[in-house]
Design a protein around this nucleic acid. Structure first.
Length: 586
DNA sequence: AGGTAGAGCGCG
DNA sequence: AAAGCGCGCTCTACCT
């Protein structure tokens, strides 16, 4: 146990610092030993709280326990303070409440304020605002920020975790989830460096020059005119699917919907301009000039990331469609002068995760040190890389038709352990059961309506229609649980990767702040930092001199994540990594 | 007028 | 070519 001398007395450094809103205008900090016993409690005036945290970080680097990272951490970041680790009570509550690894969840399973769905709009702390300007109901859907409630919840969570079937595994998940919450707040604070001029250039090239308000860009208007001419309907409202569908039928184009994949199968002079129009219309609506004005400020795009926003454990995002930035606009993501973007994505993360979870040696070998799909071809399982890809995706998603349906049986013969794992997960889901990820995040129980339909369909007098509907619902749920175990474990791998990476980057020596990067704020203008995360992909914004070191950190963090989750596994997680000034379109 | 469902399409 | 999983966002149609 580390000790520090302070004012003549010897003090044990805390393993945990539980913080909560205390008395008026103060944050109460309860320092706890590793075993949870209290060392010291103090009130810190809220104005001095960031300084207190900075000091504690330098001294011991405790794990900060707080109600909700999205509430507490932005205030520290705004004051230029980062923390190494935390325990996010809100996110962890959700995991523990549902996890199959937790035998006796006690009161965690009861509906409480900790379960309230949160208002996902992360509020910027107003200038000079303190935690005391927030009452519990003002955001986070009523998650309690007061000390006593946080303390009681933390105790419940510790009991549940200590008594879990595999506490070590679960603790990894809780730590990774919390680290993700820190990353999410940091990504928002730093912002994505966004080149407005480049974005405008891409829009102008694709759509024509920016039109006046309410006007259609010229190239879109031209395509629309071509469509109307080709369909012989000069007044056609192309943006209305029902009207468009009727016009297509009048022109004897036999489609059931107006979606592009169906249109593409037909040969008619209206099709090409229509597809071009749709593409342009989408770009304009989702990421046009209005988007640019709304979302990019001082060269930074700051989406709100929502850790734990997806049942599988993936993040969601709100604000400008952060997870759907079209490839076309990737070049607008550009490093500041003198800085670089270090981009990395994992090749075939989900199938590799499946190989590791199931211990399928043949699948691990197919991916060893190379493209997994090519490896499946080389192993003689299928003829082409495309077949391998479609087959593997079919295995993960539950595809039964077309090429994927044809290839999956071959995968089942060649990769029996991997296929058994996903097939079992599907079977469990079809029965209404619960499945869990590698680290213990469990799937939600079926809706009452789903269960009712299954029970009803089993009654002797059930109508054939009812039975068919119930069977379809069962298969739908089976595909969901099949994918849940893999998608969810891949999310755990990615969180572990992020967690290791942010700690590695935090150890980089600060550089003198450059004018260029000051838009990222006091913490991030002085060293390499994460600016983007998308399921299996990260981008680090780094001073040119730190770019190589950042690349190494990304690689070694991926390695560490693999070893942490799957000790002894032969499965590797290769990255595609580039150092550029401008993000490549790929 | 205002809320919501569905279509459609972007991302992994 | 999509299919089979998970999302968010914008638009229109349709409801109260």
């Amino acid at each position: 146990m580390t000790t520090t001398a302070q004012q003549g007395t010897t003090r044990r450094t805390p393993a945990w610092c539980l913080v909560g809103r205390g008395t008026r205008e103060a944050v109460t900090v309860v320092e706890l030993d590793a075993d949870g016993s209290e060392l010291e409690t103090r009130d810190v005036p809220s104005a001095q709280w960031p300084e207190h945290v900075r000091h504690a970080e330098e001294e011991a680097g405790p794990r900060w326990v707080w109600s909700d990272t999205a509430t507490w951490y932005p205030r520290l970041l705004a004051a230029g303070v980062t923390v190494s680790r935390c325990h996010d009570l809100r996110l962890i509550h959700v995991i523990l409440r549902h996890s199959q690894l937790v035998g006796d969840a006690g009161r965690l399973r009861e509906a409480t304020a900790w379960d309230a769905p949160i208002d996902q709009a992360l509020e910027e702390p107003a200038r000079g605002a303190t935690l005391f300007d927030l009452d519990d109901s003002s955001r986070s859907g009523g998650v309690p920020h007061a000390l006593e409630e946080a303390r009681a919840e933390f105790a419940r969570q510790r009991t549940a975790t200590d008594g879990a079937a595999d506490p070590g595994r679960l603790r990894l998940l809780l730590a990774a989830e919390s680290a993700g919450a820190l990353v999410a707040a940091e990504l928002h604070a730093a912002g994505i460096p966004w080149d407005v001029a480049e974005h405008d250039r891409i829009l102008t090239e694709a759509l024509g020059p920016r039109p006046g308000t309410g006007q259609t860009p010229s190239r879109m208007a031209e395509a629309a005119a071509e469509v109307r001419t080709a369909l012989g309907d000069p007044m056609l409202g192309i943006d209305s699917p029902p009207k468009l569908l009727r016009a297509l039928h009048r022109a004897e184009i036999d489609v059931e919907s107006t979606s592009q994949w169906e249109l593409m199968e037909h040969d008619h002079p209206a099709i090409d301009p229509l597809l071009r129009y749709k593409k342009m219309s989408r770009l304009l609506a989702a990421n046009g000039w209005a988007w640019l004005e709304e979302w990019v400020e001082e060269g930074r795009y700051r989406p709100v990331y929502v850790p734990g926003g997806v049942v599988t454990g993936r993040w969601a995002a709100s604000g400008g469609g952060a997870l759907q930035i079209p490839r076309q606009l990737r070049p607008a993501l550009r490093a500041d002068a003198g800085w670089r973007l270090v981009s990395a994505d994992v090749s075939q993360l989900e199938p590799r995760v499946l190989a590791a979870m199931s211990g399928d040696r043949a699948m691990a070998e197919a991916g060893a040190d190379r493209d997994l799909y090519s490896g499946i071809v080389d192993a003689g399982v299928v003829e082409t890389r495309q077949e391998a890809k479609v087959g593997v995706l079919g295995a993960l998603y539950g595809g039964t038709t077309g090429d994927s349906g044809r290839v999956v049986p071959r995968l089942r013969r060649n990769f029996p352990e991997a296929m058994r794992l996903v097939d079992d997960a599907a079977a469990t889901g079809e029965r209404g059961g619960t499945v869990s990820t590698w680290l213990g995040r469990s799937s939600p129980a079926p809706e009452a309506e789903w269960t009712r339909a299954q029970t009803g369909a089993n009654l002797p007098d059930a109508a054939a229609r009812e039975q068919e509907r119930a069977r379809r619902a069962a298969r739908d749920r089976g595909r969901f649980t099949r994918n849940f175990v893999v998608q969810g474990t891949a999310a755990e791998w990615a969180l572990s990767w992020l967690a290791a990476l942010r700690l590695a980057l935090a150890r980089f020596e600060p550089v003198p702040e450059t004018d260029a990067a000051t838009a990222s704020g006091p913490v991030f203008a002085a060293r390499a930092h994460l600016v983007f995360f998308l399921h299996d992909e990260v981008i680090v914004h780094a001073p040119a001199a730190q770019a190589e070191a950042a690349a190494s950190a990304i690689l070694s963090s991926a390695d560490a994540a693999g070893r942490l989750l799957f000790p002894g596994s032969v499965v590797d997680f290769p990255l595609d990594l580039t150092i550029t000034e401008r993000s490549p379109t790929k």
